[in-house]
């Protein structure tokens, strides 16, 4: 029952007003620190040279792409089971942000692949499943746009998001299940990260900065969804009286 308290949109808006400045402020500071560490302080790789710096924008974007889809699927599940209106709004607001991070991961990965692998794109498991994730985001957004009745759109979109969630573990483990050109996970491993701390620290700072950026964007997006809904209700009420 504790969770229900946060389903109240008015309480959410009040909370959001308090949290948002702190989150966005911290995101800005961490981006400044993280970008300095990543672009100037971190040493160039002995094989990859300066191009290794692409990693600091590429890897966090890919993590976020997966995390946002997970958040979206989680909210969709909550929306289906508990019928929280706020959960539907949260899932809807997350989709364009997730699509943007997925695109960022694909684009930066492509730019990194050209000097390292000698090609912009290869059709191997990690890249293909990431591209499928991008398509899933687009399909989810298209559902919201195609269905006029918001309540019906919310239900269908939630089903679509949950079905598409099957892809997330496939992406995560694609580099271990198949022989991929993409390297396997080197940060989240059972025997500790396989990266030197001079690279790992900027990467983690950037990851936290990306996450805070996402949280700030998501809070703003949820808020504007709620405001949009409210405006629509006011307009409907006004149209009813005149």
């Amino acid at each position: 029952m504790r969770m229900q308290r946060f389903a109240n949109p008015a309480r959410f808006v009040r909370l959001q007003r308090i949290i948002l400045p702190w989150v966005s402020g911290a995101a800005v500071i961490l981006f400044v620190v993280g970008l300095y560490l990543a672009l100037f302080a971190a040493p160039p790789d002995y094989q990859q040279g300066e191009t290794v710096r692409i990693m600091f924008v590429h890897v966090p974007a890919a993590w976020l792409a997966l995390m946002i889809y997970t958040v979206m699927a989680l909210s969709s599940g909550i929306a289906i089971v508990f019928r929280h209106p706020l959960a539907d709004v949260a899932a809807k607001a997350a989709a364009p942000i997730g699509a943007a991070f997925t695109f960022l991961a694909l684009a930066t990965g492509s730019m990194w692949g050209k000097p390292m692998w000698g090609t912009w794109w290869v059709w191997d498991a990690r890249l293909t499943s990431m591209f499928v994730l991008f398509l899933l985001y687009l399909g989810y957004i298209a559902i919201w746009q195609a269905i006029d009745d918001p309540r019906r759109a919310a239900r269908i979109a939630a089903v679509v998001a949950l079905v598409g969630f099957i892809n997330v573990p496939i992406i995560k483990f694609s580099v271990e299940w198949w022989n991929s050109l993409h390297q396997p996970a080197s940060v989240f491993r059972a025997d500790g990260p396989a990266i030197h701390s001079s690279i790992l620290t900027p990467l983690l700072v950037m990851a936290v900065a990306y996450t805070l950026l996402y949280v700030a964007l998501h809070l703003i997006a949820i808020r504007s969804e709620l405001v949009k809904h409210r405006i629509r209700q006011i307009e409907l009420a006004r149209a009813g009286t005149t």
Partner: peptide
């Protein structure tokens, strides 16, 4: 068109 966008990604595996 929407069916294609929704289902083709799921056809990949």
């Amino acid at each position: 068109m929407l069916v294609s966008l929704l289902i083709l990604p799921l056809y990949v595996p």
